[in-house]
Design a protein around this nucleic acid. Sequence first.
DNA 1: ATACAATATCAATAAGTATTGATATAATTA
DNA 2: TAATTATATCAATACTTATTGATATTGTAT
Lengths: 100, 100
Amino acid sequence: MKPKCCNNKKSLAEISQVADFLKIISEENRLKIFCLLKENERCVCDIWQYLGLAQNLVSHHLKVLKDFGLLAARQEGLKVIYSINKKVVKKYLKLLNRFL
Amino acid sequence: MKPKCCNNKKSLAEISQVADFLKIISEENRLKIFCLLKENERCVCDIWQYLGLAQNLVSHHLKVLKDFGLLAARQEGLKVIYSINKKVVKKYLKLLNRFL
DNA sequence: ATACAATATCAATAAGTATTGATATAATTA
DNA sequence: TAATTATATCAATACTTATTGATATTGTAT
């Protein structure tokens, strides 16, 4: 019996997208960051201090999340406030459900 | 403002669990396997031939998925038939929603 | 018992990615 | 303008994990 999925370019491209999304959020520290931001937007210093992680490490993870579109950032004085881009998250969760 | 999440052992353990789950399904070939099995249970030879992957590679990925509880396997003659353990998948998807 | 087909295992290597340390940039205040 | 604070960048290293090649195991049929 021929499988309906994984047999065309569109499906394969979507699988690749979902995999990328999952890879990004499967990192434990990034998941913690997400967890923090789910409650409230926060500045970088709040995040790294609360999680007990190095500042540059958190900055790096935030960049990964932001580059993928999952987070948004805005400057507020010296601080940069990060927040979750709910629309994008929903989009990927929806896609994920198609494959799981 | 003190965050409600990531601040107790239970939450941290759940985040760790979710991360493990996500790491496992974020692998593109494993996602393809999942995609195939979502339609129908299949034997190993069907899977590797259909996906164009090495037999031992598919066997390895199946083991990873099975060890984590996401797949079930049953012997049928020479063949081993793998299928999705829907209950377990649902459990992790539910957990995932708590953090995303 | 022997041969064959399907699957699994294992060691070695390759590839990808998180982390660290050092340093740079940017905004604010004195 | 100089100093300070918050954040970002970059190169090097450490880790983890996927892949490969060779081989073992298991079930079936001759």
